[in-house]
């Protein structure tokens, strides 16, 4: 048996389309998940335990159940419940964002709590409000420490977007599977997908490394 380059070329336009959707899904989920994650992380460190409880609950549920189960629930249950119909791409972004938000919330919480208490006191002693101190003093320092774990999370999210092929979101893995079943082939479609994912994660980690280096102070 020989490696069939020709079917990879034949499917190249579809793989490209799928790759673009994978990128779109990942980038939007990263943005939404980071925003939600920040809010949830801040919610978890509130002093009032009653107010903080829902945020604990959120992280427990979304971190404690499989992403695949969440994808099915959101695609076949939650999205149709609200809109009457469903859409794989929308459901996919929702599932990936909500799932990532739970992990990102923990990264934010750990990052914020890793900043020495003296920083908060130093700023508050000058008359700055809690919010001003968070924005100008704590978060900028915490963010720098959060880049490596956030990078991990973004890479995981990018790869996990491949799970969306089970609800027929036409992303990269979906087209890989289509190619595999059309030609009854294994190596060509899945190796092609693997290389493209690897390429994407390499770019992502390169960008994050650059960011980390740029934010370094003496």
């Amino acid at each position: 048996m020989s490696f069939r380059w020709d079917i990879i070329f034949e499917y190249a336009p579809f793989l490209l389309k799928g790759t673009l959707l994978t990128i779109g899904l990942s980038v939007s989920s990263i943005l939404i998940g980071t925003f939600l994650g920040l809010l949830i992380g801040l919610g978890k460190i509130m002093k009032n335990k009653v107010l903080a409880f829902p945020f604990y609950g959120y992280v427990t549920v979304f971190r404690g159940t499989p992403l695949l189960v969440q994808i099915f629930l959101i695609h076949f249950g939650i999205v149709p419940f609200f809109t009457g119909e469903t859409n794989a791409v929308t459901a996919g972004v929702i599932a990936l964002s909500l799932n990532a938000a739970a992990y990102i919330a923990e990264i934010f919480r750990a990052g914020i709590q890793s900043i020495d208490k003296g920083q908060m006191e130093g700023a508050r002693s000058l008359g700055m409000t809690h919010a001003q101190t968070m924005i100008h003093i704590v978060l900028p320092q915490a963010f720098k420490r959060m880049i490596p774990p956030l990078g991990n999370e973004f890479i995981v999210l990018l790869k996990d977007s491949s799970l969306l092929c089970v609800i027929a979101a036409p992303e990269l893995m979906y087209w890989g599977k289509a190619m595999g079943s059309q030609y009854f082939k294994v190596w060509e479609p899945y190796l092609a997908c693997a290389f493209i994912y690897l390429f994407l994660t390499l770019i992502l980690s390169f960008v994050l490394n650059r960011l980390e280096r740029r934010l370094k102070t003496e």
């Binding site: 003296g118 920083q119 130093g122 508050r124 002693s125 000058l126 008359g127």
Partner: peptide
Amino acid sequence: RTEVGMVFQHFNLF
């Protein structure tokens, strides 16, 4: 606190 400055043992510079 704007009228009461404070200096800490561990400086707490940003």
